[in-house]
Design a protein around this nucleic acid. Structure first.
Lengths: 160, 160
DNA sequence: CACAAAAAAGTGTATATACACATAATATGT
DNA sequence: ACATATTATGTGTATATACACTTTTTTGTG
């Protein structure tokens, strides 16, 4: 049935028939992540790892939970995501003033590999923004953030 | 440092400092998926599983690769994602006319659990679209698809 | 101060994701 | 028809994701 159907019709099928917000953002994310992962592969980094290093490069040190909040990522997911970076020596953790807390920090080696990946990231980013148009991308960013705030407000509603 | 910082400032921090397309779509997807997962939990379904069943409910049977294309999902990821659904008896696979191919099909039990989850999905979907505004959501859908096509064209460029 | 409540983080388990490699079946060129 | 290339799928491995539960430390209250 779909065997000889051109790619665009598969897109159309999915778009026209699955109106779910979640389905569509997940689908787009899979494609975008694959795209960045391929671009960053020569630098030995995955998309998530590159993002993590970028955030950590902006601050002196962050508590696990604060970093998780910035990333809108479950705390325990962050623990697992840090594992390969710790193994490579690209980040390190130290015990905080509050000895329950662990502070996460980028290492010189982490900055190094991050800078090495920068050109690949820039090329990938440029590829997208050029084709999307700067105005459109600004709009998408804005919309994604509105969407994010809506669903996080929802979880606050539930909890409170 | 971030301990007493209000949530909106964390958003602002991430948004203003991490312009990466991939970072932002992944971040939004985490939040949206968490939202739908919570909504669908009473029905015993995850977001991905609900989407899978929905697509399968629209067609008589699909080859693995065609289904993977519709979902923009790696073929091997689909294999793993089908596993819990097969275990529950919500989908089944049969050998195709081409005996290399496996055809995937939703079962009556699968339709059942899908229909059971429908009200939860509708509520979650409505929560988002109402707050986002129908026009905005249409725009987001459109933009996500443009984004998707851009990055998939890129992978076709590479391969060809 | 003693002790219960709360907070910060890790672990066990299950699903989600994709690449490299392997296997089986079909298509193709001579 | 047969050898070879191609196609469809599965497996091994590694990372990404989050919930339930546990452990350690701090906070709050008498």
């Amino acid at each position: 049935m779909f065997k000889d159907m051109p790619r665009e019709m598969l897109y159309a099928f999915a778009r026209q028939n699955v109106p779910c917000v979640g389905f569509n953002v997940r689908r787009a994310t899979r494609l975008v992540t694959q795209f960045y992962d391929r671009a960053l592969a020569p630098a030995g980094l995955r998309s998530t790892q590159f993002s993590l290093l970028n955030v950590l490069a902006m601050v002196p040190a962050l508590r696990m939970q604060d970093l998780a909040d910035i990333l809108a990522m479950d705390r325990t997911t962050l623990t697992r995501n840090l594992k390969p970076l710790l193994k490579q020596g690209w980040v390190k953790t130290t015990v905080g003033a509050d000895r329950r807390a662990r502070m996460v920090q980028i290492t010189p080696g982490g900055r190094n590999v991050m800078h090495g990946a920068q050109p690949m990231w820039e090329e990938a980013q440029k590829y997208i923004t050029e084709r999307l148009g700067a105005d459109t991308w600004d709009g998408v960013m804005e919309d994604l953030h509105r969407l994010s705030m809506i669903v996080e407000d929802a979880s606050v509603d539930e909890a409170g």
